[in-house]
């Protein structure tokens, strides 16, 4: 059984935050859909799940070593007959952000604080170290600039950066050729189940925009 790779959703969370002020660059709804897709991608990368067309297929129901992905796997085992889009919507509605936020808090990469305002109290999760939090985005950006290959997890991260529209920030300094390089890698190097998953995540974000709840 291969080990679960470095948590992809954590990387997406960090890449989605402004490395100077720690502000989230995505709307809560889009961040949620991205993280929902990312946690599912972790399970695909860890060979627990397969994506067949519009549905998830369970390959291996043994728990992962990690609490967040294990919790999501538990959900999927209990309610297997659901479409990918339902899972992304379900996880994105608060479960994935919460699980990922807690996972990052346990490793000390984010702090969670209650911010009080006129309208009530809001729980905010923000990166602790701006240098460390900038790394995932930088890895993708550097690979694009140098036209280098990316390991599978980081390539999936690049796909999620495109799917959520985060590329407008994360790849702002990358020229057309660099972006093309990444898209080319995604199309040629990424296994089909992950391509499908990214396509579903991208569609989920787009439809949220059309339905005015992004």
């Amino acid at each position: 059984m291969p080990p679960i790779p470095a948590p992809l959703a954590d990387d997406l969370f960090l890449a989605a935050h402004d490395s100077v002020h720690g502000r989230c660059l995505l709307s809560p709804a889009i961040l949620g859909l991205g993280l929902g897709g990312a946690v599912l991608a972790e399970l695909v990368l860890g060979q627990r799940l397969d994506v067949r067309g519009d549905h998830l297929a369970l390959l291996d129901d043994r728990p992962t070593g990690d609490v967040a992905s294990a919790a999501v796997l538990g959900h999927i085992i209990r309610d297997a007959d659901r479409g990918v889009r339902d899972w992304i919507a379900y996880l994105g509605g608060g479960i994935a952000p919460d699980l990922v936020g807690r996972r990052l808090a346990r490793t000390g990469q984010v702090r969670r604080l209650a911010r009080r305002s006129f309208f009530g109290t809001k729980l905010i999760t923000e990166p602790v170290d701006s240098v460390a939090s900038g790394r995932p985005g930088t890895r993708v950006r550097v690979a694009a600039e140098r036209r280098e290959p990316l390991p599978r997890t980081d390539l999936t991260l690049a796909g999620l950066i495109f799917a959520t529209g985060l590329d407008q920030y994360a790849l702002a300094t990358v020229g057309t050729a660099g972006r093309k390089h990444l898209l080319d890698l995604l199309r040629r190097r990424l296994p089909e189940p992950l391509q499908r998953l990214l396509g579903h995540a991208e569609a989920a974000v787009g439809e949220a925009v059309l339905a005015r709840r992004a």
Binding site: G199, E202, G206, E207
Partner: peptide, 20 residues
């Protein structure tokens, strides 16, 4: 197909409500 046309990949999704 609207938002179900992928910008990243060339495939699209069947329009009959994926997963429902």
């Amino acid at each position: 197909r609207g938002a179900r046309s992928s910008r990243i990949f060339t495939f699209g999704f069947d329009a009959t409500g994926a997963g429902r």
